[in-house]
């Protein structure tokens, strides 16, 4: 009995650090893709709103594809397709590209709605004061629109943060993947899933609080 070999070892402090590092990777890929995706999505949303023919015909359907095809399928397809067209992307880079485009597609529609919510009369009032198109956009449409879409945008951001777990299928060791590795070793799925959930909560909760305080400030 004394010589029994154990294949499993229990969950320890080192594993918490391992998961914290994985949580950092989740945060990294989410923050970068949400940031870049929001900027691109903002430009796309503006193009959709302005409704130039090319934007409506080309951009609309492309964004619809990103919104409609399940993210996991997009990730696997792109990861395998990228090398064929000459891009040697690792799991992180592939995941980043897809999450960014996915964010951009969601944000584009939110932004289009936000610009529309400002309304023609308000914009005419701005133009009647002598503002040019860009001044109207920068000083009137942007600040009013941002307040209108902020809650929707926070929803998109939180969604992408959680959906980033899907990048694990490409082998990127983020929070979910790390949990799976530890579960295999420790055979303690409940505990580890609970810890992973706590990490996701710790990442998301500050965003909700932060946005709630913003909205309170604006609503006065």
């Amino acid at each position: 009995m004394e010589n029994q070999i154990s294949f499993f070892s229990s969950f320890g402090l080192n594993d918490v650090f391992f998961m914290a590092e994985a949580a950092y990777r989740t945060l990294l890929i989410s923050v970068v893709s949400i940031s870049i995706g929001t900027v691109i999505g903002g430009i796309f949303g503006w193009m959709l709103f302005e409704g130039r023919i090319s934007a409506t015909i080309l951009l609309g359907p492309i964004l619809d594809v990103f919104r409609s095809v399940p993210l996991i399928i997009q990730l696997v397809l792109f990861y395998n397709f990228a090398p064929i067209i000459g891009f040697d992307l690792d799991a992180f880079e592939s995941g980043l590209v897809i999450l960014t485009l996915y964010t951009a597609a969601l944000v584009a529609n939110v932004v289009r709605g936000g610009i529309a919510s400002v309304g023609e009369p308000m914009r005419r009032a701005a133009r009647s004061l002598g503002m040019n198109y860009w001044q109207d956009l920068r000083y009137v449409v942007f600040p009013i629109g941002v307040r209108a879409i902020f809650p929707s945008w926070v929803g998109v951001a939180l969604g992408v943060l959680k959906d980033s777990a899907l990048v694990s299928v490409l082998g990127y060791v983020e929070l979910l993947r790390a949990s799976q590795i530890l579960m295999t070793r420790t055979q303690e799925p409940l505990l580890i899933i609970a810890v992973a959930g706590a990490f996701y909560f710790a990442l998301s909760y500050p965003i909700s609080r932060f946005s709630a305080s913003f909205e309170r400030k604006w609503s006065q």
Binding site: M122, A125, R127, S128, L129, I144
Partner: peptide
Amino acid sequence: LNKLRQSMGMVFQQWNSFPH
């Protein structure tokens, strides 16, 4: 037009004050 409009103030039925 942006310059010309500066010489003409306009007031609308819906006052359209900037809410922010």
